[in-house]
Design a binder for these strands. Structure first.
Length: 198
DNA sequence: AAACGATTCAACCGCTACTAA
DNA sequence: CTTAGTAGCGGTTGAATCGTT
């Protein structure tokens, strides 16, 4: 006995949304808001499941969304935040006006990961590959030291997560911690792109 | 022009978190 | 406190598009 599905799959349309469906959903939400996604498709005359409607609205139809290319500043913000919080796409997206978690995730997976790798930076740890190799050697030699470093990094990440969850923060360089403001972030990408801009 | 591979991104799936009763 | 229903998240998929041969 599994969970009851969110909708009867047989009676539900899937795949690409048509402009008519978009119109129906948009005008219904404009009138009634987004309370109870389960009822929205039924009331709006759509043969879609509520989940699909919510996704379509939040990722595409919302009027406050940006649809164009990501700017250099947005990319830097994503990389910087990703180096701190990892794959917490919704947290990262919340710091970028008009971008969704899906946007950020797609952009990261298709562009930024490759960009970083091309620069010799590991997109997971945000450290140069050469440093990683050195770290592996160190770790093998003195496990205690590496555990301490890992614990310290964990505390910092927890603190950042706490801040980001509590409120939207302005991630401009001059308002960050002294280390970050000096371009001394954990991600060499920031420093190098700043350099590139000159 | 056609075939094929690579890339992009919208949409789906399954899980967890949250909330109201 | 427990439970059931809903919302939200991150990973994954696959159709559409683009670029190359």
């Amino acid at each position: 006995m599994g969970r009851i599905p969110c909708c009867e799959k047989d009676n539900v349309k899937r795949g690409q949304w048509t402009p008519e469906e978009d119109n129906k959903l948009s005008s219904y939400i404009a009138q009634h808001g987004t309370r109870n996604w389960r009822l929205i498709p039924k009331n709006a005359g759509l043969q879609r499941c509520g989940k699909s409607c919510r996704l379509r609205w939040t990722n595409y139809l919302r009027p406050d969304l940006k649809h164009g290319q990501f700017s250099e500043a947005e990319e830097q913000t994503i990389v910087k935040l990703h180096s701190v919080v990892g794959n917490r796409w919704s947290l990262i997206a919340a710091q970028l006006t008009g971008r969704t978690d899906n946007d950020v995730k797609n952009h990261w997976n298709t562009k930024l990961k490759k960009k970083l790798s091309g620069m010799g930076i590991d997109p997971v740890t945000h450290k140069p590959f050469s440093h990683l190799m050195a770290e592996i050697a160190t770790t093998l030699a003195t496990p205690q030291v590496s555990h301490l470093a890992e614990a310290a990094l964990g505390c910092f990440k927890d603190e950042m997560l706490h801040l980001l969850t509590k409120k939207r923060i302005d991630f401009q360089l001059q308002q960050c911690s002294p280390n970050v403001a000096q371009g001394n972030t954990s991600s060499p990408y920031i420093a190098s792109t700043k350099h590139d801009e000159k």
